[in-house]
């Protein structure tokens, strides 16, 4: 009765997320009392191969549990009802971080690891700036970086961060081995990624942070710690000699079914001096390229406007950081 004809929703239902179809319907879920999760079987494999075997065996009946900060509320509200959870938190291999120019983050590294590691924040300043916007401390203490990316909520911070960093998602399955998907191809729709039901996101590969590069990340939320109405991140690289922009990236959360790169707008800055006027022009183009929808928190017009405001703020922040 709460079904939805939207393609994304159909795909989600096929993957065991039965009634969650779109945000508006999530909010309409008043059909029956729901505060305890539906029954499911549970496995806690200790190796990646064991986990892949389970996913291979159970296919879209199974759902991967990492930190659970997105999945468990969906279970409690009975908006998701997988038959089986595969808890990957006890797979030691997935909890590792490798810093060696580029950054490799195992799928179960918790978000708080970034807050607690100056080294990691230095290695990737954008990650350091974006992570504190995720919920509140207790959420980040359990929530994983990989889990947030795999959940692919368009209002979440980390999918947009991956897009900005041009990160690569390493997927592995029992039958297909390992493949690497660039962020630009990973986020397909609302809560939908390129990962197949049998595939496990094992690692996030973040390219090395290049010299002369600065990051900015900001959000407008109704309350401190809420999912943002709109969030924006920017990465700007400046030529140390000329001060001209050599690379410019801009992405938004909360304005579509996926995080969105503003490719046309970000190109405008490359080869130019990042003046206030230039950034304002960039913001106007970024704003014009969006078609957000409205909801209980803000109208579509508000979201579009805020995307422009935040563009100016985060690009300036990134430029300042790059200098």
């Amino acid at each position: 009765m709460l079904s939805c004809a939207d393609d994304n929703c159909k795909r989600l239902r096929r993957r065991g997320v039965r009634e969650l179809s779109c945000r508006a319907q999530l909010r309409r879920a008043c059909k029956a009392a729901a505060m305890k999760p539906p029954p499911f079987a549970y496995d806690a494999p200790e190796t990646i191969d064991e986990a892949l075997g389970l996913l291979d065996e159970h296919g879209d009946e199974a759902k991967v549990l990492a930190g659970g900060q997105s999945l468990i509320p969906l279970l409690s509200m009975r908006l998701a009802r997988p038959a089986r959870l595969v808890d990957i938190a006890r797979i030691a291999e997935l909890g590792q971080i490798f810093l060696n120019g580029s950054t490799r983050i195992g799928a179960t590294v918790r978000q708080c690891a970034v807050e607690r590691s100056a080294e990691l924040r230095t290695a990737n300043p954008l990650l350091g700036k974006a992570i504190p916007f995720i919920g509140h401390g207790p959420i980040r203490n359990r929530g994983t970086i990989g889990g947030s990316v795999a959940h692919a909520d368009p209002a979440a911070e980390l999918p947009a961060v991956m897009l900005l960093l041009e990160a690569e998602m390493v997927l592995r399955s029992a039958s297909g081995g390992e493949r690497t998907v660039p962020a630009a191809e990973f986020f397909e729709g609302f809560l939908t990624t390129a990962a197949q039901p049998q595939e496990l996101l094992v690692e996030l590969r973040l390219p090395a942070w290049l010299p002369g590069t600065g990051a900015g990340f900001q959000e407008i939320a109704r309350r401190h710690g809420d999912f943002a109405i709109v969030g924006a991140g920017a990465v700007v690289q400046l030529d140390p000699g000329t001060g001209l922009v050599t690379d410019s990236r801009l992405a938004f959360t909360g304005v579509a079914g996926t995080p969105v790169r503003a490719t046309e707008a970000e190109r405008m800055l490359v080869g130019h001096e990042p003046t206030i006027a230039a950034i304002a022009e960039m913001a106007a183009v970024a704003r014009a390229g969006l078609e957000p929808s409205g909801d209980v928190h803000a109208s579509a017009a508000y979201r579009r406007h805020i995307a422009g405001v935040l563009t100016e703020r985060v690009v300036k922040e990134a430029v300042d950081a790059a200098r």
């Binding site: 549970y42 806690a44 549990l65 659970g68 900060q69 468990i72 509320p73 409690s76 808890d87 938190a89 708080c112 401390g137 207790p138 959420i139 203490n141 359990r142």
Partner: peptide, 20 residues
């Protein structure tokens, strides 16, 4: 909110079995 290994977490967002 409870502490799990010293960190504050939401105990409604964690399965008991995750705290093994």
């Amino acid at each position: 909110t409870v502490l799990v290994d010293g960190d504050p977490v939401r105990s409604c967002l964690m399965l008991a079995v995750q705290a093994r």
